[in-house]
Amino acid sequence: MSATEHVDAVLARLREHADLAPRVFEGVADENDDGSPRTRYVTVWANSGRRTVGRYTGPQDVETYTFTVHSVSQVPSDVRVLADAVMQQLLGFVPAIDGRVCRRITHEVSEPLQYDRDLTPPLYWAAAEFDLISDPA
């Protein structure tokens, strides 16, 4: 059981999208090469996996990973463009993980658009949560 393999599969899937490829970060987005703050990006925050019992007397070998994805931009409509690209890539995606049988990724929650005026420059962002359930092979 490895959270890393599951997280890596989701990050790779997001980065397959041409617009998302240079903009997807695990955790905090780093600065641009010139040191300026990023103003258009997607951050992915993953838990370490929740283990549950698949059968009444069985081991805790069913893993559920929750991914919280923030789509961020200076313009509200662009946040929606990024969020739509994330949805396109993740919704229904079934990762291939050695030794595991993954179920399709499901969209669990979306949060309303937020505005953070404390940043320079101020940015809009929207969060969405996705779940990935992984069973032993």
Rank of each mutant, 00 (worst) to 15 (best):
V62D: 05
V7N: 11
R13K: 11
V81Q: 09
V75R: 12
R80S: 11
V72T: 06
L123R: 14
F130T: 04
Y41C: 00
E26S: 05
Y65V: 05
V94L: 04
Q88N: 14
D34R: 11
V72E: 00
D131V: 03
R23Q: 02
H6C: 02
S48L: 13
T64D: 08
R50S: 08
V62I: 09
M1G: 11
A127C: 04
R117I: 03
V72F: 07
A126Q: 11
V42T: 03
L132A: 07
R100H: 14
D118Y: 08
R40H: 04
D19E: 13
D131S: 00
R100F: 14
P22S: 05
S77E: 15
S71Y: 00
S134V: 04
A46H: 00
D84R: 13
D78L: 01
I105E: 05
Q89E: 13
E129L: 14
F93M: 00
V53R: 15
D98E: 13
V62T: 05
S73I: 11
G58C: 15
S134R: 02
V62E: 05
F93H: 09
V62H: 02
S48I: 09
I97H: 13
S2T: 06
D61S: 06
V109S: 06
D116I: 03
P121F: 01
P122H: 09
T68N: 10
G92S: 04
A126W: 03
V53W: 11
Q60C: 12
D61I: 06
L82Q: 00
A137S: 10
W125V: 05
V81C: 08
M1Y: 14
E31K: 08
P122S: 03
Y124I: 04
T106Q: 11
Y115A: 01
D33T: 13
D61G: 07
L14P: 08
E108M: 10
A128T: 10
V7F: 02
E5W: 12
